[in-house]
Computed example of a mutant assay.
Amino acid sequence: MKKLIVSSPCFEDGGLIPVKYTGHGEDVSPELVLDDLSEMAESIAIIMDDMGHPIPAYNHWVIWNIPAIALIPENIPHGEQVDSLGAIQGCGYGKHRYRGPKPPFNWSHIYHFNVFSLDCRLDLPSTARKKDLLAAMQGHILQKSVLAGHYR
């Protein structure tokens, strides 16, 4: 199986995340492009974590049941249900939405957008958190890729 490649026209892998996609800007999710997505994929899940936070891999966003599409649009709407995609957003950063980078004290943090292609849709309530999503994905992950960015 080919390796899933995740990129974004908004920033390069390892590059600076533009202010628009942060808590200091519009706080909207960036567009994500998935190359070599498995033909067997039924859905996509995304987990975005702050890797520089004192709490390891502090979660900013969890979303699942995105259709197996090659382009995840920018500015995913807030809320538990994302009707335009048929997806569900769980509790990340205490909210049902994307919460962009906003590290304290002008520190530079690295953020990982972990993207998973799955062989099914997941039956999880919107109250689910990262640990619940990770558990539900076990045995269903076809591909995984990470897009990293940093922000100060």
Rank of each mutant, 00 (worst) to 15 (best):
M1D: 14
K2D: 13
K2P: 15
K3A: 09
K3L: 12
L4V: 11
I5V: 07
V6A: 05
S8E: 02
S8W: 04
P9L: 09
P9R: 01
G14I: 09
P18W: 08
V19D: 11
V19Q: 13
V19C: 09
K20I: 06
K20H: 08
T22L: 02
T22F: 02
G23R: 10
G25V: 04
D27T: 09
D27L: 12
V28C: 07
S29L: 06
S29G: 12
S29H: 06
L34T: 03
L34A: 00
S38V: 03
E39L: 11
M40N: 15
A41Y: 07
E42M: 07
S43H: 02
S43M: 12
I44K: 00
I44L: 08
A45R: 14
A45V: 08
I46T: 03
I46R: 15
I46M: 08
I47R: 06
M48A: 01
M48C: 02
D49H: 09
D49I: 14
M51P: 00
M51D: 00
M51K: 15
G52I: 10
P56C: 01
P56S: 07
Y58S: 06
H60I: 13
H60E: 10
W61V: 05
W61A: 04
V62R: 05
V62S: 10
I63F: 13
W64T: 00
P67E: 12
I69L: 07
I69E: 04
A70Y: 05
L71D: 02
E74A: 11
E74L: 10
E74D: 11
E74G: 03
N75P: 00
N75G: 07
N75W: 04
H78L: 12
G79L: 06
E80A: 15
E80P: 09
Q81E: 12
D83Y: 03
S84I: 14
S84F: 13
L85E: 10
I88H: 07
Q89G: 11
Y93D: 05
G94N: 03
K95C: 02
K95A: 06
K95W: 05
R97H: 10
R97A: 15
Y98S: 09
Y98I: 09
R99L: 13
R99K: 12
R99M: 14
P101Y: 06
K102E: 02
P103T: 11
P103G: 15
P104Y: 13
F105E: 07
W107G: 07
W107D: 11
W107K: 15
S108L: 14
H109R: 12
Y111S: 01
H112N: 14
H112V: 07
V115H: 08
V115T: 10
S117G: 04
S117F: 03
S117L: 00
D119G: 01
D119I: 00
C120M: 12
C120R: 15
D123C: 09
D123W: 04
L124T: 12
P125L: 04
P125E: 08
S126C: 13
T127H: 08
T127W: 00
T127Q: 08
A128W: 03
R129L: 08
K131A: 11
K131T: 02
D132N: 04
D132V: 01
L133I: 06
L133H: 03
L134A: 06
A135Y: 13
A136F: 10
M137E: 09
G139W: 11
I141Y: 05
Q143K: 00
Q143F: 04
S145F: 08
S145H: 12
V146G: 10
V146W: 09
G149L: 15
G149T: 15
H150G: 03
H150E: 01
H150R: 15
H150L: 04
H150N: 05
Y151F: 14
